[in-house]
Design a protein around this nucleic acid. Structure first.
Length: 557
RNA sequence: UGGGGAGUCGCCAAGUGGUAAGGCAACGGACUUUGACUCCGUCAUUCGUAGGUUCGAUCCCUACCUCCCCAGCCA
């Protein structure tokens, strides 16, 4: 569904990467900007990835360049076709079209050849130390590592060993290919990093063609260079991998030289942003799946009812910098309200119904009232809504003993029914438990909406649904998955699940709404924006997810 | 106590020698058939701290403090 992006940003904000690109173009260092979004297909994309997607695609777009969607699939143990396809869908849904769809696994052969070049140049060797031994000899943050006893094997022997690794002669973990850089480097990434490891595991894409797989630090720069990527943008934690990135490009004699730039990943209040954590929620059945509306995944946000435009605007407005940050989720909410404001029809829904009988309205009578679909956007037209003797109003909209400044229906206070009449409470009916079960009112025919009645004013206007014509529906309201915010919004540490992350109410919507309107996202008066759930909603019983509430200086629900 | 980064309003974030943009949030007020929207107004004499250079420093120098990342055959 296409949505109008009503947010206009006056001149896309600048950021330090954009400035570098501008200078690279001006100085002729690059002829064209080529970026890439390089997810590993080992989980679903989340809002943090959306920031990266927008950054990469927007940057290339702005300078007439190109962007590749590239699956960084170098670990057969974690990757899956399902994830790759879901990622494609998410990127497309966000509104971006990649210039090329690439796979790191398509470059395995060239990577292997380049590795042999490294060996011939004396820049890589096959090491037979065990995992524990490698760790033990790597040194610590303050002490240098010690060289592997295999460090000075001849190129011939290394070549032979490496070929045999590929042929499957050795077991997992028996040997690795290592770069020969500097075991005493203060940058641990440079202490003879592992380039290839053995894994006798089928790859979701390369199947059984390989039993050795390149490591990220070796594969990623080559992928970028092979594709002609000019600006390789990644997150902060890769900052000290950059020297290795540059080393690989140079040592492997790649004809094109990409450069890596880092920015701070997105963190948001009240949510978790690590695939590990999200995956656990899915696998433990805490949520419905990767697309559960409570998930910060793109699929989850989509199912909840977020618009691509809102996410894109959010990603742009949040900015690009190098300091760790924690963005207030209310910023995201603001942008989706903005995006939906003029396009979502505004209708009435009662989430927690309370029956109101209008004593002086003729029994059996039904009249049709005209209601505009969006008072701020006349293009959405008008609809007719039924009004009768019995209606549903929100339980919260009636109080027998109201606090001060309560503008809704009370035994002494007249209110306006949106699009209809003023009503006045005459009598309160209780159930056996002493709870209010029904409110009896009278209405004033002269106050009909649109009649121009100015005889008296009411402070409050409440929404309602005609009981005879109402249609039952379920409303899903969401809260954060976790109860408390961890110290810095990180994903570690035990956090308590919020038992109220999902609450459902069964209430009523305007019956005509479902038939007549193609829209699946509405603003329910005084409640917020709701989107029909793609998995749970049926023709006979619609289910709506609250995308976001309306801002309120008074707690409605 | 190695290396790499970062510290500007409650949250993001511009500015990088000429005297603190913008957005979110918040708070007033107007308007209101959504306690919404809209509108109008308020919201950093101050840029982690302390010195120094300068006519002038958030921007330069020095020292210090705080936070984040790195010792996966993960990415």
């Amino acid at each position: 569904m296409d949505r109008v992006n009503v947010i206009t940003t006056n001149g896309a904000a600048s950021n330090y990467i954009k400035k570098i690109i501008e200078e690279d173009l001006r100085e002729g260092r690059v002829a064209e900007v080529v970026t890439r979004f390089p997810p590993e297909p080992n989980g679903y994309l989340h809002i943090g990835h959306a920031k990266s997607i927008c950054l990469n695609f927007d940057l290339a777009n702005e300078f007439g360049g190109r962007t590749h969607l590239r699956f960084d699939d170098t670990n057969p143990l974690k990757e899956d076709e399902e994830y790759a396809r879901a990622i494609e869908e998410d990127v497309r849904w966000l509104g971006y079209a990649w210039d090329r769809l690439c796979y790191a696994s398509d470059y395995y052969e060239e990577m292997f050849e380049r590795a042999k070049l490294l060996i011939r140049k004396g820049l890589a060797y096959v090491c037979e130390l065990s995992g524990e031994e490698i760790r033990a000899t790597r040194g610590t943050l303050t002490e240098p590592g010690t060289p592997s006893p295999f460090r000075n094997r001849s190129a011939e022997e290394n070549l032979d060993q490496f070929e045999r690794m590929r042929c499957g002669e050795f077991a997992d973990g028996a040997k690795v290919l290592r770069a020969k850089i500097d075991m005493a480097s203060p940058n641990i990434n440079l202490r003879d990093p592992i380039l290839y490891r053995i894994a006798h595991a089928p790859h979701y894409r390369a199947k059984n063609a390989w039993c050795i797989y390149p490591m990220y630090d070796y594969a990623h720069p080559l992928e970028d260079a092979i594709e002609g990527v000019t600006h390789s943008i990644c997150t902060l934690e890769f900052e000290d991998h950059r020297p290795l990135y540059d080393w690989v490009i140079r040592a492997c004699e790649m004809p094109t030289v990409p450069h890596q730039y880092e920015f701070a990943r997105l963190n948001m209040t009240n949510t978790v942003m690590s695939k590990r954590n999200l995956k656990a929620l899915v696998e433990q059945g805490v949520v419905d799946g990767w697309d559960d509306p409570r998930m910060p995944t793109i699929a989850g946000l989509r199912r909840k009812g977020y618009t691509p435009g809102a996410i894109r605007t959010f990603a742009r407005e949040v900015g690009v910098a190098k300091s760790n940050s924690m963005v207030d989720e209310r910023m995201l909410e603001y942008f989706v309200r903005e995006d939906l404001k003029l396009v979502a029809p505004r209708t009435m829904a009662v989430l927690r119904p309370l029956r109101v009988v209008i004593l002086n309205y003729p029994e059996g009578q039904l009249e049709w009232l005209e209601a505009e679909n969006n008072s701020e956007n006349p293009e959405l037209g008008v609809r007719q809504i039924p009004f009768g003797r019995e209606i549903w109003i929100e339980q919260d909209d009636f109080m027998e003993n109201p606090p001060p400044k309560y503008f809704r229906l009370t035994p002494g206070q007249e209110v306006r029914l949106k699009h209809a009449y003023f009503i006045r409470c005459e009598k309160v009916i209780y159930d056996a438990a002493g709870k209010v079960s029904e409110v009896h009112c009278t209405y004033d025919p002269e106050t009909k909406s649109g009649s121009g009645f100015t005889g008296r004013k009411v402070k409050g206007t409440i929404h309602w649904v005609c009981a005879r014509e109402a249609r039952a529906a379920t409303f899903q309201l969401f809260e954060p998955i976790y109860l408390t915010e961890s110290e810095n919004g990180g994903d570690d540490g035990e956090r308590l699940l919020n038992p109220n992350s999902l609450t459902q109410w069964i209430g009523y919507i305007e019956a005509q709404m479902v038939k007549e309107n193609a829209a699946s996202t509405y603003q329910f008066f005084r409640h917020g924006y709701f989107h029909e759930d793609s998995m749970l909603s049926t023709w006979s019983h619609p289910v709506f997810n609250r995308v976001v509430s309306l801002k309120s200086s008074y707690e409605v629900l």
